[in-house]
Design a protein around this nucleic acid. Structure first.
Lengths: 249, 249
DNA sequence: TTGAGAAGTGAACAAGTGTTTACCAAGATG
DNA sequence: CATCTTGGTAAACACTTGTTCACTTCTCAA
């Protein structure tokens, strides 16, 4: 590392014993934990990430993002409140960074589900299972998403909504390619995609806390989500356009 | 009113003139504005209601319930912070009272929709229209519901979830009576009811703020909700039980 | 090697918060 | 009539909050 070499060259004065000592000291220095070994840019980003994680952790106790104070976050990270401003101008800015980060893990989840769909097309069961596992693995991220989609901070809320709309648009394009749904009109795709995405979003809390909202006599949250998507897609398959309005449902 | 009658009987000593005067005085008393005319119990309840309304009003500016402070609420009502404790032990208690109140206006909305359903069965269009109008009329209530269903206060969140489950149970029983859906299993009813209720809940923000989340090129929120419910119910009609799982959707 | 720049410090600031206490005026009650 | 009850008051309490400022280190590059 750079630091160890600096130390090494700084104190090596020709004396081989001192040189050897310095070498060992430098080696030691290299393994003393991140606070001492990182170059500035890395260290800064690490602190920034620690701030983001701290915010998520504090939210996990049940409170919303807007109830998490700047000081709490810095306290959790172990820096002084003023240092916060070296990374974000605002708690809102931190919230937006959080949205960005969380939305990318959501995208990754979708990518995983899609890859599965390509292998064995149409398996809702497998898709939901993969998605549910991913949600559990990234609990905090999805908890943030679920809680703040209608939450207190207007900026965060809007950002999440924008992200959701992106997902809807993507899914819309996807659905339009399906030969099974070629009988739908362009506006039907949009509504259908919105329905699917919002159904997934509302199921997030149940997927995250299966114990909290799950009654023993009913199906598991993942199983319920499966069935819900099935209801929707069967409905789409039998959709007959504008006429269905008076079909009697 | 009770007070006027009290006054009337209290000072009516047999003399007709006094009786007449007291009657007029009592009448006058009834119309002198709420600060001076109410008996204690009524006045207390009125202040209590003012506290509840104030909380809703403060939330309408965009912040979540848990971000509304006790002092803000009392300030808005015009009483001193300490007086809050004459009505609620806690802000959480106020939140729970709010849930109760809001849930009863939701019940009223459902009652209206149901009555319409009886008149002309199966008209999703009319049902959604009635519901949407009601939502707009009681903006603040439904905003509270939409925002706090996953919001910051754990107590409020749980109360709303319990309420939602009640709705789901009711709808479940309703669906089970429909001859069009007699091919569904008992667990299917539950999932279907949950899907419908949650779809309605997630659409609340769009119904409340049509301008905020509505893109000009797509259908109106109410129209979208109609179509979503139609997708779901058509799916239910063509549901073929457990076999549908491998039907290829 | 020196100097600029930036992450983090520590103390101070004016607000705002929830809660408690003693007190008052007025309705309810005997 | 006097007495108790109670909704509301005023002031104080011990905190916490966001933001600022001058400061110390320590990096990195010239």
């Amino acid at each position: 590392m750079q630091l160890s070499q600096q130390l090494f060259t700084k104190y090596s004065t020709g004396c081989p014993k001192v040189a050897a000592f310095c070498y060992i000291a430098a080696q030691l220095h290299d393994y003393l934990g991140y606070m001492t070994l990182l170059i500035r840019a890395e260290k800064k980003q690490q602190t920034r990430q620690a701030l983001l994680d701290a915010a998520l952790t504090l939210m996990a106790d049940g409170q919303g993002f807007s109830a998490v104070s700047l000081r709490e976050v810095t306290r959790q990270v172990g820096i002084v409140p003023a240092a916060f401003y070296r990374h974000f101008p605002d708690m809102d800015a931190l919230g937006l960074a959080l949205v960005e980060q969380v939305s990318s893990t959501f995208r990754e989840a979708i990518r995983l589900v899609r890859r599965n769909e390509l292998e064995q097309y149409g398996a809702i069961h497998a898709s939901v299972r993969i998605f549910a596992e991913y949600v559990v693995a990234y609990r905090q991220h999805f908890l943030f998403l679920a809680r703040e989609q209608y939450g207190g901070s207007a900026a965060v809320r809007q950002a999440i909504n924008a992200m959701q709309r992106d997902f809807i648009t993507d899914l819309e394009a996807d659905l339009a390619l399906s030969p099974r749904l070629s009988h739908l009109g362009p506006e039907d795709y949009e509504v259908l995609a919105s329905l699917v995405v919002k159904t997934v979003f509302t199921t997030l809390p149940e997927l995250i806390n299966p114990h909290e909202s799950h009654q023993p006599d009913s199906r598991s949250p993942a199983h319920q989500l499966e069935d819900k998507l099935r209801f929707i897609l069967i409905g789409a398959k039998h959709w007959r356009g504008i006429k269905a309005r008076t079909d009697g449902d």
